[in-house]
């Protein structure tokens, strides 16, 4: 039975493992791209080329090593993102830029196709089949050095153009809105200046958490009392002694106190031999009186 359980557990891990990985890759989004770059950002080689920006929309690190980028729906595994590069681990809510310059020998982030002659961009999971995100390139709308991207990082359709727009300025490797997020505290100050909403919400959540605990332990307690009664009845049937399930804790406390007091009293009034005598020691040898232990050994040459 245990062996069977272990096999199931192992199978569970084997099945769930890739699933979990794919799930985190699912949080990656195509976020912005630039098709024709003549006067925009340049790569480490001093070359200006088209680029594709990906965004990790989750709050966990995502490793995109092994995933694919392609511009061909018939060939989803066109460019495989190398697995061994530590830079493919994308931190939460961070961006990563791929140069679409058809120069893959220049490194992990230079892919093997360019965007000038592409109709769409597709980001594919590491299984080589699951399309995580895709966007059509509106070639006719895009001028030179003008990028196309999501209005808000990671927000909008996965396939359509909802949430996408022609960007006022390019923003490779940074957020598309171009402004820092408003801190939550500032938003709360605006919508709840007197703290009433916060108080009601938070108190409700505190109550909800503790009510749930109450309900669960109320049921566990009931079950426990029922089981205890059942055991007691079985014991009564076997021994013929009265059941003790309904005895209150106060009675137990009283019994325990009485026993404790009795023990203490017993110790306090222990029958002691009042005759003081000096008996002869029956055992003569003691290491404390032994010369072997008190003398140092003679040094040996």
């Amino acid at each position: 039975m245990k062996k069977l359980f272990k096999i199931f557990l192992l199978l569970g891990f084997l099945v769930a493992g890739p699933g979990l990985n794919a799930q985190s890759q699912n949080d990656m989004r195509l976020n912005e791209f630039l098709v024709i770059n003549t006067d925009d950002f340049e790569d480490d080689f001093g070359h200006k080329g088209g680029w594709i920006e990906l965004f990790n929309s989750s709050y966990g690190t995502v490793n995109i090593g092994g995933c694919y980028l392609t511009n061909d729906p018939a060939n989803l595994t066109k460019y495989v993102i190398p697995k061994a590069d530590v830079l493919t681990k994308i931190s939460p809510r961070q961006h990563i830029l791929f140069w679409a310059d058809n120069q893959p020998f220049r490194g992990t982030f230079h892919i093997n196709f360019s965007l000038e002659d592409s109709k769409e961009i597709i980001f594919v999971a590491s299984d080589g089949k699951t399309i995580i995100d895709r966007v059509a390139i509106p070639v006719e709308k895009l001028d030179t050095n003008v990028s196309y991207g999501r209005l808000l990082d990671g927000e909008g359709d996965l396939i359509g153009h909802e949430g996408w727009q022609i960007m006022e300025r390019t923003s490779p490797s940074t957020n598309n809105a171009g402004v820092d997020e408003v801190p939550p505290a500032v938003i709360i100050k605006q919508i709840d200046p007197f703290g009433v909403i916060m108080a009601i919400t938070a108190m409700s959540v505190v109550f909800l958490a503790l009510i749930l605990l109450y309900v669960v332990f109320k049921q566990i307690g009931k079950y426990n009392i029922k089981k205890s009664r059942e055991r007691s009845e079985v014991a009564t049937a076997l021994t013929g002694k009265p059941k003790v399930a309904n005895v209150s804790a106060e009675i137990y406390a009283a019994i325990a106190t009485a026993l404790h007091a009795y023990n203490q009293d017993s110790e306090a009034h222990d029958i002691e031999n009042t005759i003081l005598t000096i008996n002869k020691v029956t055992r003569n040898y003691s290491p404390w009186s032994s010369k072997i232990y008190t003398l140092r050994e003679t040094p040996q040459k």
Binding site: G195, M198, A199, A202, M203, V206, F207, A209, L210, I211, L213, Y214, F217, K218, G221
Partner: peptide, 15 residues
């Protein structure tokens, strides 16, 4: 376990 709810109510001081 119903005493749990008192622990929730006393958080009123915080808010």
């Amino acid at each position: 376990p119903k005493l749990l709810l008192i622990g929730a109510a006393a958080q009123l001081g915080i808010f």
